[in-house]
Amino acid sequence: MMSSNAATSDKPVWQHRTTGKQLAIWFAWLVFVAVFVACWMFISNRTEWYFVYDAPRIAADIWGRATPPRWPYLDKIWKPLWDTLNVATIGTALSLVFAVPIAFLAARNTTPSATLIRPIALLFIVTSRSINSLIWALLLVAIIGPGILAGTIAIALRSIGFVAKLLYEAIEEINLDQVEAITATGASRWQIMSYGIVPQIMPAFAGITVFRWDINIRESTVLGLVGAGGIGLQLQGSLNTLAWPQVSLILLVIFIAVVISEWISAMVRRAII
């Protein structure tokens, strides 16, 4: 109602967007909807709808076969479950050893050289992050053979980038007054680090670590699918032999393990802040 008044009077006109911008936004929406519809048609044409219509019946059938879970099989799961937890925990710990120095080299305010070393550190981070731990495991099983070691290293390699990225962002956000104050006392470079910077990033560090550990528990449960040890190996074996009651038991155990790990990481985070 204001706009019609403003157009006729001398009062200054204010618009959120110019007409050109508004048109551009409409056009972008048009393109988006057109692409969406085109993709929908493409997928629809290539789907065997017969199988999809059949899906509820098959799902019900599998559910019927999978219940009740085969409880006695639990005895055979404890060991691989323990392996899985170890892969996640040791893998996370191992990643920290590399991630912490890389984070300090990558953070703009702590890097020794922003033109040379920082890009290298960032390259490490991107490389680690761009490859899923399942792929890392696939490569490592081929290189060092199947087993828990491959799984642990795969988890560690994937986690380095994750932890280092979040940690270097935390380092870049610290309060510089505190660093300045420690510098002014005549402290050395390493003392400035341990008094001015480390206390400030401790909560972030602890939060990131348990968060990644929590993710790694979930990721390590599937590493067995490619031969990297743990409970995934059992899962694959059961799937291949169509032993559905075992599959359901394993999924249930993984579910409980993940719930417990989330509960632990939530507790740790609350304790540290």
């Binding site: 505190q178 104050a181 420690i182 510098t183 002014a184 005549g186 206390p199």
Partner: peptide, 15 residues
């Protein structure tokens, strides 16, 4: 710098 003490507006304590 050890001989120069400094006091800050926002205290600049390590919180």
């Amino acid at each position: 710098r050890r001989k120069i003490g400094m006091i800050f507006q926002e205290y600049a304590l390590v919180e």
